[in-house]
Structures are given as structure tokens and as C-alpha cells.
Design a protein around this nucleic acid. Structure first.
Lengths: 187, 187
DNA sequence: TGTACATCAGTGAACGCGCGTTCACTGATGTAC
DNA sequence: TGTACATCAGTGAACGCGCGTTCACTGATGTAC
């Protein structure tokens, strides 16, 4: 933790670290404050409530993931090229900030019911992209949502394995293999 | 909730329902007791603690899943036949008790660090089966753990979609399609 | 049939605890003149 | 340079609350004689 970071960012970083290590519900405001060398009341100078802090961590990052995915999904070329681009985006996000990726992975179930199904929702982006490709005849016909789920599973489950130490490499190092697996699904 | 069930089973059932609906940490012993028409202290006649109740729900079921998977993994024929059998087992488990499946799905991250990596661990069963097939040359060479993760992802992510209403069909009704997707991965 | 007693699932009241949050206050830093 | 004041991140003490859990007790049911 470089002390050069602004207090607000140090709080976000340490909170994320603790949430991933112990689970969101097992970490108190006092725990977070202690990790940044403060007392709990000081956190309220930066976030209006615990809910606000967690929301700032989850929703902003989740939307940013969706934004980058939507960009890849709108790229040039056929569906397979765009699928490869999307997979590479997600793997790159894992490589660039694994802590954030793990946080989204572990806390998703607590938030997914609140997340709007709009164009910044990563899951929605993939579902729409697959459905469009299937409707256009670019890939074999079937249940588009099931196929989208399978693609997401191929990316997310290895990240879970990494988190629990079953895989030592991150998604960044396995990108090419993951791309190959995803492309097999749409063959 | 048939009142014919023994009190202990009614408690387990209602607890599971509440945990899936609101998250494990958001449900108190008083909530569970109210759902079965009791007061909180009565629960302690059946379970020694909250931890004990949750553990009874998770670990026994998780081990049973592992046992059934191990049985399918030890079946006759080549790897592809055994993989198909394993996928069918998981889909059948989802079809036979979706609430239980969802409970394991939602609470896994809170327990996976405690689960021993033995022969009753469903993830371990799949990892070993894939690794053996790869070592025997039954399927193309690669990272066996990554492939195992991908297979698990193809099954688990559609279950997550069902849970959040993105898919209306359960795994039971999509079994054949899921089998096809998994077999594509090992081609 | 009637009485005394054992059993035991369930309860009301209470416990200590850690939680999120509030608020008056501190004390270091920067600015005005 | 020196003094008075404004600013503001951070703090100590305290709050009300809901939690898991304990325990003496209740009251229905079954058994012995």
C-alpha cells in the first residue's frame, strides 16, 4: 500500500483486500479503518455509509468491465473475431488487477439482483452478442442464452480456480488457451 | 412445507430457502425459527449452533454430490462416455432439488476453503478424471486443470443464469445441449 | 378408570457482544495582515 | 517575523440495535401401578 495514494483510494483498496480475504460480511468498518491506520469514524469523511463504500467498489468496477466488453463486442470482423476480442479483454482485466476481479467474483451474488440489465452490464453484453450472431446465422443455432452462459463459465470458473489456488497461472497467462476453448464452443 | 416432515428436516428446508433468498449472512436464527413456526431457542434442541446448522446443510450435500460424481467418473467406457455421465448426474441433481443446488452455488465461496480435497469433493473428482484422460491420450493435450475448470463452468454458469431468471429452463431440461457443449471442449 | 410421575419439544426473558453510526472535539496546516 | 484565525482530516466516547446463545420453566404426552 503506497502511502502516496489519496486516503479515499487507500480505503477502497484495503477494503477490497479484506473483503476478498474474509468475505464481505465478515469485515467491519473498524477492520477496514485499522487496515488503513485510522479509526472507524474517519471512514465517514470519505463514504457516507458502509453500503456506499461497497457500492462504490462494486458498481463502478462492474460497469467499467461492461464498458470495455461492449467496446470489444462492437469491434470489426465476424462474430468469432469479436468473441476472441471479448475473451482477451476479460483476461487482460484479470491480469491488470486480480484483486478487483476476485472481488467482483466473490461478491457478485450479493449484488446481481440490483444490477440493471443495461448496456454496461457485462453479462448482458455477451448475451446480446451471442444472440445476434445466432440470429444472423454466424454460428450454429441453439439456445443463445445457454451458449452465452457457457462462454462466461469458461472464463469465470478458471478465475475461481486461480483464486482458490487450483491454478497457479492467471487468466492473462492462459488467454490463448481460453480463447481456443471458447471458439470450440461456437464451432 | 409438509408439516409431516420431522422438525429437524423442516428447519433445514426453511433455512436453505431463506439462505438462498436473502444470503446466508442476512438470515438470523430468529428468522429461521419464525419460518418453521418456532422461537429461536427451539432450534438449539436440533442443532448445537448456527454454524452447525449451516455446516449440516453444506458439507453433507456437497459430499453427496461428490459421491455421485465419483460413481459416474468410475463408470465403464472411454472418457467421453464418463464425462457425459458426470454431466448428466449434475443436471439430474439440479432437476431433483434446485433449492439445494442453488444453496451450494451461492454459499460455496464461504466454505470452499474448508472443504478437504478428497474423493468426495466434486471439483476434485472432475479434475482427476480430466487429468487421467489427458495423461492416457484420450483427449488432446493441454492444461488439464484449465479444461476441468471450463467443464465445470459450462455446467455451473447456466445454473447461475437459471437462479437469476436469465434462463427459464433448469439444467434437467437442457441436459442434452450441455452434454454437447462439454463434448465440444474435449474434441 | 384414576393418579403420580417421567419425558421432552418448545418458550420467555435475559445475557454479553460487536456492529454501524453520530457528534463534539483535537490538532496540525495554511492564510491574512 | 509574529499573531489570529479558518480549515479539515482524524478521534474518543457513546448511542441503539440485532445478533447468537443460555437457562429455568411450561405444558402436552406417554407410562406405571
Amino acid at each position: 500500500m503506497p502511502p502516496s495514494l489519496a486516503p479515499k483510494d487507500r480505503i477502497k483498496r484495503e477494503a477490497m483486500r479484506l473483503f476478498v480475504a474474509h468475505g464481505v460480511d465478515a469485515v467491519s468498518m473498524r477492520d477496514i479503518a485499522a487496515a488503513v491506520g485510522m479509526k472507524a469514524p474517519s471512514l465517514y469523511a470519505h463514504f457516507s455509509s458502509r453500503e456506499d463504500l461497497i457500492g462504490a467498489l462494486f458498481h463502478a468496477s462492474y460497469a467499467e468491465y461492461g464498458r470495455q466488453l461492449a467496446e470489444a463486442a462492437a469491434g470489426p470482423g465476424g462474430f468469432r473475431g469479436r468473441l476472441e476480442a471479448m475473451v482477451r479483454v476479460v483476461c487482460a482485466l484479470h491480469a491488470s488487477d486480480e484483486l478487483l476481479f476476485d472481488f467482483l467474483l466473490l461478491t457478485q451474488h450479493g449484488f446481481l439482483r440490483d444490477v440493471p440489465m443495461d448496456q454496461h452490464n457485462p453479462v448482458e453484453v455477451i448475451c446480446r452478442s451471442v444472440a445476434a450472431a445466432m440470429a444472423a446465422g454466424d454460428i450454429p443455432t441453439g439456445n443463445p442464452t445457454l451458449l452465452a452462459a457457457a462462454i462466461i463459465g469458461i472464463i469465470v470458473q478458471p478465475a475461481t480456480f486461480k483464486l482458490y489456488g487450483r491454478l497457479s497461472q492467471g487468466l492473462g497467462e492462459m488467454t490463448d488457451e481460453i480463447v481456443v476453448l471458447c471458439l470450440k464452443l461456437v464451432s
